[in-house]
Amino acid sequence: MSMSQTTPRHIPDRLRSPMQARLMSWESLLLAVAVGIFILNTLASPYFLDAWNLSDATFNFTEKAMIAFAMALLIIAGEIDLSVASIIALASTAMGVAMEMGAGTPVLVLVGLATGMLCGAFNGALVTKLGLPSIVVTIGTMSLFRGLSYIILGDGAFRGYPADFAWFGQGYVFWVISVEFVIFALLAVVFGLLLHKTSFGRTVYAVGNNPTGALFSGIRVDRVKMILFLLTGLMSGLAAVCLTSRLGSTRPSIASGMELEVVTMVVLGGVNILGGSGSIPGVVIAAFVMGLVTFGLGLLNVPGIVMSIFIGLLLIGVIALPRLWSMWRKKRV
């Protein structure tokens, strides 16, 4: 019974069309939530449906989302970086030092990005070369990076960035479309293509699902992880440029606690915190959801501390919903 003589059974490529799969996905659920929040906001406040107000709302998430895209890839690959907010602090401080030394805007941007990448390289080296768990490494560097920033700045602050530096965080490309929003949109496309359309993206999923299997399949697992730490560092550097430009100053407490908001965004976007699955469209929608919620509550004069309660409830609710739904259906059968 030779293989070549028997007619092989034909196996179809797919059972469900990609369209069908998309309709049933997490992203669709999240999109429905986003639309619901949008409608609620419209009903709750007469000021919500205003082009400039909506434009302002985007600043709630653009900087976090830049980091969240890279973080999504890192988490899908089975690692995490909790030091991102501290990287912002250190990168911003480095820019401040460069400004004091008379650097112009192009140099400031380069310093910010380079500092971010260096921090990412440091995290990546500790994880891949020494084989340490990334959650421990980056909890350590979280204190380290911000600590350096405190040593340099103490109680003080860097002010007086060049006027043209303000373009990144305060500029508009066209009408109500801000520079930050354009950067966010471009990065969404770039990271979406990188994760979903390239062979590198495929290896990210493979590493996250089964690092041993990926290694045995000839994937340079450590190199993939190193690249992702560098990317996350770079995106944190970029977020530092935008945030510093928007605030116009650097304090060592800049972006405090942002790492958790970034991770929340990634998880809300449907990325499995244990690695292996998730998508960039999911993270993009999650960014809008979080932005809309905080902005809508802001219009209603809800204080920030209550807002974080809402975000927490939203995260738990959206994650628990599908589970509750399937439990309820099982009970009915």
């Binding site: 293989m3 028997t6 092989p8 059974r9 196996i11 179809p12 490529d13 797919r14 059972l15």
Partner: peptide, 10 residues
Amino acid sequence: ERLDLRAASL
């Protein structure tokens, strides 16, 4: 198919 795999879809 050379290995005569049995699966619902690829």
